[in-house]
Design a protein around this nucleic acid. Structure first.
Lengths: 221, 221
DNA sequence: TGTACATCAGTGAACGCGCGTTCACTGATGTAC
DNA sequence: TGTACATCAGTGAACGCGCGTTCACTGATGTAC
């Protein structure tokens, strides 16, 4: 029960169990090295020193493998995530410290998630796991930040926390090349923390929005 | 010269010029309706009431069409963008007003960009145009915000402006479904403006980062 | 301790499908005389 | 105002390729007796 085998036809001998593991591992390696386009059934079974017939003895098809890998990986990721969150000491931290901690956690998540999981998500059928994982992550971090609700000046703390986390996640997710300014990884984290903290403490509703918004000219019609 | 025909074999009769336009239009419509996967040469020429032979008389291949469409669309987009920026009155605005104006402009850009351009970018070979366009957009907006440099409390205004714009862009770009909280389009804009403004005025470097960073436990190794 | 036999596991050639691309051919256009 | 002819434009069947999937077959495993 170490592996939650979903729709996969379960192996009945240790020999085929090893083959199944080789196939799973090979698929992940290919996803990691060559991306979704390199992930053909032939490539998988060749790398796994197996054959197409063995592949189809275990999986109903390629989509089945993708779904299986997806579920497995996102479950693992969620497990490690929860451990990581629990290992930190959030109690007694100021909002600024929490913001920085949250950013550090998110940054490392995204670094680790990097290739195979992203590629899996891009491959389509892996679909739902990624979305659920992100929702899970944001929910947990939202609670962390809301524990310092008193320090949040934003009129609607729940909304602010969600939007702020979405922004930071998206920022860390963006290709670093886009920020051509010489800005290394640790500086980006510092800035992301500042962004989150600054937003949660921003109280001024702006005011200039309406005057500009009214006579808005839609160039993209 | 209204169309900057790049590598396309130029038509020599008005008949084939119309065919070429029908093909371009059909490709964009398919991209809009069915996404990149629906964009096959057969589908294009059928929709354009043409034939594969006519297609290959104009283009060296499918990639050629994609490159042509890409270049054309991003050039058009940049043109409309510059007009839109110029039409606004930025002078004499406070930093908060500028932030809201910038967000409004970005939001409408992303709304208009929506389907065909995104699909084109996703189709791969359209590649470089999108990146250049985004860089162009960010450069222009950076200058707008830096015109109020005096109101930016962030120690490195240039960096702050770039990071802030990247964050807002990424936030507006994110699938709205992710923010499950009932948050409509206009509220999201308000929040994005507040985020940008708040960040540019954030001066506190946090302080909690180092204490958490040192004993950091990397769960994703 | 052997042996028969059902089941499991593995193999790789072959198939079908959708796609981009080619090509031999027919028809339209416009210019020279 | 006609007519010949070179060029342009259009057509769609056919090809090749890469892919996911199937299938008839051989070999391995383990259990019943």
């Amino acid at each position: 029960m170490s592996h939650a085998v979903s729709k996969v036809h379960p192996p009945k001998q240790s020999r085929s169990r090893r083959t199944l593991e080789r196939i799973r591992r090979a698929a992940l390696e290919i996803l990691d090295q060559d991306g979704p386009d390199g992930l053909t059934v032939q490539a998988i079974v060749t790398r796994a020193r197996s054959s197409v017939g063995s592949f189809y003895a275990r999986f109903d098809g390629k989509d089945d493998l993708l779904a299986d890998l997806g579920e497995q990986m996102w479950l693992d990721a969620a497990e490690r995530w929860d451990e990581a969150v629990a290992l930190r000491s959030w109690d007694g931290r100021s909002l600024g410290e929490l913001a920085d901690g949250v950013v550090a956690l998110l940054a490392d998540t995204h670094r680790g998630e990097a290739l195979p999981l992203r590629a899996l998500a891009a491959a389509g059928s892996g679909g739902d796991g990624a979305r659920r994982f992100r929702a899970h992550v944001r929910q947990g971090l939202a609670e962390v930040l809301l524990s310092r609700r008193a320090e949040i000046d934003h009129p609607r703390p729940e909304v602010a926390v969600q939007v702020g986390l979405a922004a930071v996640t998206a920022l860390l997710d963006a290709p670093t090349a886009e920020l051509s300014e010489g800005l290394d990884e640790s500086q980006l984290r510092t800035e992301a923390g500042r962004l989150l903290h600054g937003y949660l403490q921003a109280t001024d509703p702006g005011g200039g929005a309406s005057s500009q918004g009214v006579d808005f000219f839609d160039v993209w019609a």
